[in-house]
Design a protein around this nucleic acid. Sequence first.
DNA 1: TAAGATATGAGAATTATTTCACAAATTTGG
DNA 2: CCAAATTTGTGAAATAATTCTCATATCTTA
Lengths: 214, 214
Amino acid sequence: MPQQKSEHIPRATIQRLAVYVQVLENLQREGTEVISSEPLAKACNVNASQIRKDLAYFGEFGVRGVGYYVKNLIASITSALGVDREWRTVLVGVGNLGKALLNHKEFRLRGFNIVGAFDCDPFKIGEEVSGLEVVCTKRLREMIGDNGAEIGIITTPPERAQRAANHLVEAGINGILNFAPSRITVPDHVNVEYVDFFHHLYALSFNITHPNSK
Amino acid sequence: MPQQKSEHIPRATIQRLAVYVQVLENLQREGTEVISSEPLAKACNVNASQIRKDLAYFGEFGVRGVGYYVKNLIASITSALGVDREWRTVLVGVGNLGKALLNHKEFRLRGFNIVGAFDCDPFKIGEEVSGLEVVCTKRLREMIGDNGAEIGIITTPPERAQRAANHLVEAGINGILNFAPSRITVPDHVNVEYVDFFHHLYALSFNITHPNSK
DNA sequence: TAAGATATGAGAATTATTTCACAAATTTGG
DNA sequence: CCAAATTTGTGAAATAATTCTCATATCTTA
Ligand SMILES: NC(=O)c1ccc[n+]([C@@H]2O[C@H](COP(=O)([O-])OP(=O)(O)OC[C@H]3O[C@@H](n4cnc5c(N)ncnc54)[C@H](O)[C@@H]3O)[C@@H](O)[C@H]2O)c1
Ligand SMILES: NC(=O)c1ccc[n+]([C@@H]2O[C@H](COP(=O)([O-])OP(=O)(O)OC[C@H]3O[C@@H](n4cnc5c(N)ncnc54)[C@H](O)[C@@H]3O)[C@@H](O)[C@H]2O)c1
């Protein structure tokens, strides 16, 4: 069982592990069974020792002289990341984006089941979206007590994100994925990740504007 | 005019600058006119000298003893990032996600105008989405010659992303925002950013699973 | 106009991450 | 079964990024 060997693991390592899984899954789909760090590194656009060092935080998954068995390595990394299980999630803010996410089947496929949908708009409460009844945000605590969700997804307007986060924290969630373009403040034990593709467009803009700074 | 003072700027700095803009815009909406690095840092969840150092790459934007004028600082950072102008973009892959993005008005609002929509499915070509006629991917080069787009957005299935990227590169694009969950290979002068919220869910999963490793 | 309070900007010190280099393990072919 | 060819895993070295510290600049108030 891949067990964490060392204390602190860089955030960058976690991000790369997600990339490795993605690339390995595509390789697997194309029929590759074994791969060594060199070509995998090329496909992921990183240094080969970087991959080996990242993996070394969790154990020894390769075979010297051979490389890594793709299927095996996927299993090892997903286990290290903790995504080899079901994660129950709830979504707050059933608007355009919220509905699109509720209908997105990939969540369930990847083990992130959305088991609750919440909104504060009385016109939306009671509506059914993708097999879930939209419930009043005030009942978040009670509902999470029932369904045991651990991750909250925020898709409210930015000025409501902090309020939504407060409700989620109070309800006992310990991870938040925030799609609203605003930062939220939460207690230390709660993890927050932000999704905002404009940040990526900004990065492109910068890199195109300053081509030499690479 | 904010001019780049130093040669290499860390990628992490660029990502943070985008966060600063986001937080500053929200502060501005709430009426804040001046802010010092300490409270701004708190809102962005970073160290105050980090902010000052990040800004120092581009110039001196603060007033000693006072702090930063919010409006001014937003202008300085957006100028540094190169997002104080219009960026013309094209989108390849007019499916569920592609259509949602084409209808998303925020792009235009933020200066990223989608001026072309491409797909290879003959049933989709000719269809009109959000005021744009869907055009065959093969005509990408010709169309970009006309509309002068510089950024391409990929929303094809993962196994088609590389092909889409090749078309975009050939057409002379120099930045790509890839929503497909696969890595693409492009020449050195082309910049690629990846958007995948499962990577963020993976990070949450890891952090919740290993609470001590923070 | 001078003193006290505040907050930036930048060099130095620290800490973290990445890359290198190579010993150890495994396979393959004669 | 041994030698040659691979390729991992890891300590050491090199790089990079972050944080600390403080001199310097500005504002406020008396
Ligand atoms: N639409 C997109 O494609 C898109 C893309 C990226 C980011 N976003 C961001 O995602 C968020 C949602 O976008 P949208 O287009 O779905 O907006 P929307 O207005 O359609 O939906 C927002 C929903 O949140 C609900 N809401 C408001 N306050 C709430 C609260 N306190 N508790 C619970 N629910 C609350 C509203 O009733 C509404 O149903 C925005 O912050 C937007 O910037 C949207
Ligand atoms: N739907 C979502 O909410 C969502 C969210 C995140 C990521 N994604 C990713 O975005 C991509 C698109 O998702 P979707 O749900 O819109 O899929 P989709 O199948 O609805 O759309 C894909 C579109 O791409 C077109 N296409 C295929 N090959 C092409 C090519 N070579 N050139 C041009 N067009 C081509 C298809 O004709 C189709 O119209 C997928 O990779 C998916 O994993 C989707």
